[in-house]
């Protein structure tokens, strides 16, 4: 079919990245990353149900450098998707949709998700007695 070869809109490469568009793509990307991250949550619960040795293995993975990097990435993805998801819910209610408002609440989401990520890791290390 000839229509199969039509160029599809939008052409992302001809646009200058803007806060609003980058944040929109980030919402999808973090959503996909979090869906993959559920695997670790499921393995963790299965390990807890299986026995102390299996649970120890997964905890050792979580404590490793690669494990910590993954958890840090997933924690940011979670807070970002959560905060931006709330922004989306306000939009669904027809609020905060103006150009200025969209930039303002966009910046708020970025700041809030970084702050919440840092806060949760500080809290985590504090409860381990590492601080």
């Amino acid at each position: 079919m000839a229509s199969q070869n039509r160029p599809l809109s939008p052409h992302l490469q001809v646009y200058k990245p803007q806060l609003t568009s980058v944040m929109s793509i980030m919402h999808r990307a973090t959503g996909i990353a979090l869906a993959v991250g559920t695997l670790l949550l499921v393995f963790w619960l299965i390990a807890a149900a299986t026995g102390e040795r299996t649970f120890g293995d997964i905890q050792a993975f979580n404590a490793s450098l690669i494990g910590k990097l993954l958890l840090f990435g997933w924690s940011f993805a979670l807070f970002y998707h959560l905060c931006n998801g709330i922004r989306h819910l306000f939009w669904d209610a027809g609020k905060g949709f103006g150009l200025e408002a969209a930039y303002r609440n966009g910046r708020l989401v970025v700041v809030a998700s970084i702050a919440l990520t840092v806060l949760s890791w500080v809290w985590g290390y504090a409860s381990m007695g590492a601080l």
Binding site: S75, L78, L82, G85, I86, S120, W121, W123, G124, Y125, S127, M128, G129, A130
Partner: peptide, 18 residues
Amino acid sequence: ALIPLLIWFVASIAAMAG
């Protein structure tokens, strides 16, 4: 539904780290 559930979950895990 996930807004309160995830805040609760992350806070609980942070409080139980280690």
